[in-house]
Design a binder for these strands. Structure first.
Length: 120
RNA sequence: CAGGGCGGACGCAUGGUCGCUCCGGCGUUAAGCCGGUGAGGAAAGUCCGAACACCGCAGGGCACGGUGGUUCCUAACGGGAACUCCGGGUAACCGGAGGAAAGUGCCACAGAAAAGACACCGCCGAUGGAACGACGCAGUUGUUCACAGGUAAGGUUGAAAUGGUGAGGUAAGAGCUCACCGCCUUUAUGGCGACAUAAAGGGCAGGGUAAACCCCACCGGGUGCAAAACCAAAUAGGGAAACGUUUGAGGGCGGCUCGUCCGAUGUUUCCGGGUAGGUUGCACGAGGUGCCGGGCAACCGGCAUCCCAGUUAAAUGAUCAUGGCCUGCUUUGGCAGGAACAGAAUUCGGCUUAUAGUCUGCCCUGUUUU
RNA sequence: CGGAACGUGGCGCAGUUUGGUAGCGCACUUGACUGGGGGUCAAGGGGUCGGAGGUUCAAAUCCUCUCGUUCCGA
């Protein structure tokens, strides 16, 4: 069985990391969310893999609904990393009216946005 | 059996696989491995009260804010318990609570009047007065007037009208007098107290509103774990020492070693404050469970036993299987669907609000049977 | 974590302090002026005052709880 470890080092935690991605990153607009990513040569981290940050505004729902969205997105990133941009800092910005409730729905939505690079 | 009142408990379970936080162990470090651990009754709202930390502070008063039957519980509270009075309910039970006799304000419309009844329409006009008569010496008496005066019975209103009902009394009336009820005062008894009961007396003053100002009693210093403490980059600035100071470090203009201008603002080292960042604060506590004892109860005491989340762009998840619950279809089997409100953020004690459904204790009322 | 403001016809706002009639502008409807539109004039309709409970004779207004929106400080 293949292991998909995901420690905290693959997540964006610092405010300056978020700001750098927001300022210099490329954006992909999906239904109910936006994907912002910054390529490998621009990020100053020595870490080679991708890092993920999730942003869920308060308008989406109460704390239970926001936590559930974050957990689903994090699980999708862990199990289906091939559909996300490679070697980048990624911010998954959720918008009000986020329609995706299941793990597979998130994976398909991201795969259709990023195109053939991760669709296999 | 039906309806109702007051509570209490639970709020999916078990297992496999892949993951996450923290703790312990192994590993020189790292990568990692093994074991353990991980949301609630409201974690929510942030409406009160405290602990803790920093700042302020001689003492007292004012102002401001809060609380409001009594006694008790508690670290404290606007919380809780028991009791008192009032109101609601057949009842179990539920809800409310200082002062309107210190002062001020307000009470629209309607109504005579909305609070000091010298007021208005009325009623009376006994007594006094006037006019006209009767008998007539004085004077007595009748009628009328409604002048002085008496009165607050009645007056369509209004949410609310100055004790109520009945009788006596009167010119008409009036607690003017009486009976009952209400109210007030005093005394006695019971109770820690709120208050209750009884007796005697007063003839009745004192409309409502304090979630209007206010008065009385009690309480309250401010800010909050992003508090606060410790470690501590980069940049700028501060202090000290050394070097340098018209024998000129350094800088401006200029293409330039020259010229000209400014001129100790300079360099090095050290120190202190302190930002980003990190660590502590930070989970053994007014703690949980059980038993015993005290108390009507809230609660308190003793003994035994347990350790029970600790994140910081913020972990507690995903998926599969089995079982239980509910709903629909179905002859059983079975199939399909559903499972609420809601997520720790320094920590406790309360309050309030949200909540699919399940189980359960005590009590009240009605009906039936015995 | 702490604090503040707002919610009133379809829209934007007064009225809340000091409780008794809910008003203004735009919009809407009808009619007149015009051959018609626009415009003007006249008349009219439309509001559980965010929700629930309470105080009061009476609540948009006072008190308590609650919902939503917006903003501020660390």
């Amino acid at each position: 069985m293949q292991r998909f470890g995901q420690r905290n080092s693959v997540r964006l935690r610092q405010t300056r990391d978020f700001n750098r991605v927001y300022r210099n990153g490329d954006r992909l607009y999906g239904k109910g969310f936006t994907l912002i990513y910054l390529g490998g040569e621009q990020k100053d981290s020595c870490f080679t893999g991708s890092r993920l940050g999730i942003s869920v505004p308060k308008k989406v729902g109460n704390a239970v609904q926001r936590n559930r969205i974050k957990r689903i997105i994090r699980e999708a990133f862990r199990l289906h990393r091939e559909v996300f941009p490679q070697g980048s800092d990624i911010v998954f910005a959720v918008r009000p009216g986020f329609p995706l409730t299941g793990l597979q729905a998130v994976r398909d939505a991201v795969a259709s946005m990023t195109g053939a690079e991760g669709a296999e």
